[in-house]
Amino acid sequence: MRAVVVDEQELVRSGFSMILEAQPDIEVVAEASDGAQAVAAVRAHNPDVLLLDIRMPGMDGLEAARQVCASSECRVVMLTTFDLDEYVYEALYAGASGFLLKDVRRDDLVHAVRVAAGGDSLLAPSVTRRLVADLVRQQRRRAQEPAPGRSSGLAVLTTREEETLRLLARGLSNAEIATTLYVSEHTVKTHVSNVLTKLGLRDRVQAVIRAYEEGLVIPGETGEGEGAAAPSRE
């Protein structure tokens, strides 16, 4: 898999590049120090993954992510020093597949690139908590809480696809969703793919955001009882 590493600090990007280049299945095809260079590198090299610093002079990582996600299939993983970065929510909406803190462990960095290249999404746990907290605040600002039950915004989904989205938003893996719904992992992958396609979403991160926005998942719910779902007859 091919990667581009972008950070305004030379030591940071060269360090990340060295870690990735040491892997037999990863090639760093370019490095860059700002957003404009990042966009140009993606156009020139067509990488699978872009590791992108969120705070840079000139064009920042947020604008670079917007442009890259809008014009290519490259997966964008944002790099940040602060887990409370105010751009987290907006960058996810722009299409970023996840966030990593810059003090990430070597193995976790490599894992993140592989996960992103495989089409999945990732977030540091602290970033996930902030994302959910933002969604809670947005819900509280609304004049009326979402009505329980099926949301009109999700009407294009089948009942089983909506169940899959609910469990996905609660952080369950495909294997855990399969166990809960008494279906195979292959079936879960099909449901997840259908959810993304029908709702026009780029990846699982945006699916989680949509689930909270639609009131499908209420922050603070534990999900107890989900395992009692009736077996599917698919």
Score class of each variant (00 low, 15 high):
residue 3 A to Y: 00
residue 169 A to C: 07
residue 102 K to R: 08
residue 8 E to F: 04
residue 158 T to N: 02
residue 192 V to L: 04
residue 118 G to L: 15
residue 9 Q to L: 11
residue 7 D to T: 01
residue 94 A to M: 04
residue 117 A to C: 09
residue 154 L to Y: 11
residue 102 K to W: 10
residue 115 V to Y: 08
residue 42 V to T: 05
residue 125 P to C: 10
residue 107 D to G: 02
residue 90 E to C: 01
residue 70 A to R: 10
residue 98 G to F: 05
residue 37 Q to A: 09
residue 87 Y to W: 04
residue 12 V to M: 09
residue 85 D to R: 04
residue 218 I to R: 12
residue 85 D to Q: 09
residue 90 E to L: 11
residue 146 P to F: 01
residue 219 P to K: 08
residue 184 S to R: 10
residue 142 R to F: 14
residue 229 A to G: 13
residue 184 S to Y: 14
residue 85 D to M: 00
residue 135 L to A: 09
residue 91 A to R: 12
residue 62 L to R: 06
residue 23 Q to M: 12
residue 74 C to T: 15
residue 151 S to R: 07
residue 123 L to Q: 11
residue 123 L to W: 13
residue 140 R to Y: 14
residue 15 G to T: 07
residue 109 L to N: 07
residue 57 P to G: 14
residue 47 P to Q: 10
residue 109 L to I: 11
residue 40 A to Y: 05
residue 96 A to R: 07
residue 103 D to N: 15
residue 200 G to I: 08
residue 197 T to P: 01
residue 19 I to N: 00
residue 183 V to W: 03
residue 86 E to V: 13
residue 166 R to P: 02
residue 68 V to N: 04
residue 179 T to L: 12
residue 146 P to L: 07
residue 29 V to H: 05
residue 139 Q to A: 15
residue 201 L to F: 08
residue 20 L to I: 04
residue 3 A to S: 00
residue 151 S to L: 05
residue 97 S to A: 15
residue 112 A to Y: 15
residue 73 E to D: 13
residue 56 M to S: 03
residue 165 L to A: 10
residue 218 I to N: 12
residue 51 L to K: 02
residue 143 A to V: 14
residue 172 L to I: 03
residue 105 R to G: 15
residue 12 V to A: 05
residue 197 T to S: 05
residue 25 D to Q: 14
residue 120 D to F: 13
residue 29 V to P: 00
residue 164 T to P: 14
residue 19 I to Y: 02
residue 38 A to Y: 07
residue 119 G to I: 07
residue 172 L to V: 06
residue 69 C to P: 00
residue 181 L to V: 11
residue 182 Y to D: 10
residue 87 Y to I: 03
residue 9 Q to A: 06
residue 113 V to F: 14
residue 18 M to A: 12
residue 193 S to H: 07
residue 191 H to D: 11
residue 111 H to Q: 11
residue 164 T to C: 15
residue 69 C to E: 02
residue 47 P to W: 14
residue 72 S to H: 14
residue 209 I to C: 02
residue 179 T to Q: 05
